[in-house]
Design a protein around this nucleic acid. Sequence first.
DNA 1: TATTAAGTGGGGTTG
DNA 2: CAACCCCGCTTAATA
Lengths: 214, 214
Amino acid sequence: MRIVIAKCSVVYTGRGDTRMEEAVRAIIIKNDGSVSIHADKSNKPLNYMGKGNVFTVDKKTKHKQVWTFETRKESLQIFITKIVSDTSFSLSNDDAGLVRDGTENHLQGWLAENPQTIGYGFTLVSREFATGAGAVDLLLEDTGGRLIAVEVKRTALSATVYQTLRYVDALKDQFPDKEVLGYIVALDVRPNTLILAEKRKVVCVTVPSNWKEL
Amino acid sequence: MRIVIAKCSVVYTGRGDTRMEEAVRAIIIKNDGSVSIHADKSNKPLNYMGKGNVFTVDKKTKHKQVWTFETRKESLQIFITKIVSDTSFSLSNDDAGLVRDGTENHLQGWLAENPQTIGYGFTLVSREFATGAGAVDLLLEDTGGRLIAVEVKRTALSATVYQTLRYVDALKDQFPDKEVLGYIVALDVRPNTLILAEKRKVVCVTVPSNWKEL
DNA sequence: TATTAAGTGGGGTTG
DNA sequence: CAACCCCGCTTAATA
């Protein structure tokens, strides 16, 4: 990992076009070839390019250089005016990285094992059940033999309601003799989404954020 | 801007929960208080926290420290085992940052002024026209007096088709005596999206990525 | 390989 | 503050 502090301006062309006027910034070049350019604020870089680029240095003079990072479709050029510092460090190259807990996937798994928390007497029919409109997260059945199509989300938005309705319609086609209900189970259901869901007869269940402790 | 190279493990709790085993990583602490932790790959940090946190250091011994970054809702703890390097740099504090060109907004503006590029004889009725299902990007009219609801996107996905259909339905309610057509104009239309769009009678128009030069 | 969906998504705009 | 939508989104799962 190489960290360069330099006065520079930057031009990017590819998926979009961006440019930055001259300023003193931190340039981080990593082992995999990725590069990011940082100002002294925000955890996000001002500009960046992923691994897999070709890095070339065009030395006009000792203090006038153009660094080019190029892939087939994109190019990032750093016009170096003055280098303040240029250091390389050796980090762990077997870094296991980040482990996530409590994602939607965990929640879905837990709900599959505890369907009665969604509604009294509910039992699991299938997980990721394939309908004509895509796979529904959970397919349940209530004590009256009605099918329950459950869409699990961290945050439920209005599009989630329409998504659930498509599953319900597809299931009604598949099982013409059954009654089918749509449910949304989410950590966060927006007020607007709730209103829309009620209008379209979709039930929303909010899961407390500490569901893991149950 | 302070750059620390250290052997450390990390725990984050807040919007989600994450943890990282011990490894040598780069820790970047900026002037606005934001922090990010980097491995020697990817332009993105392994873990981070935005500005506005409270930074406290709990020194067990010279080489055993716990750095805590806390906001009201989140907390990031870095368990420092060994510090390899600890340097501070002064960057521009008046960095003007990034300027973007050629975004979807630009495209939408250009299309509003050149509606005939979408279809022969099309004329602009309104931009960001409010329907009951949200604002449609462009509302046009063809020579036959039909209304054209245009959704402009960089990349058109299947959800875009449903979004357009909701606009079309809402416009039919608003103008029961008019015929209403749905159009998607995008730089990139995925094959699957195209198939779905044809099935639902939504027209897709692909804009060449060099539209700016026209 | 391509498509879909999740993310500690981020960030801006509008009501 | 919430809702909505774009982003050079990125990234992982999946068909």
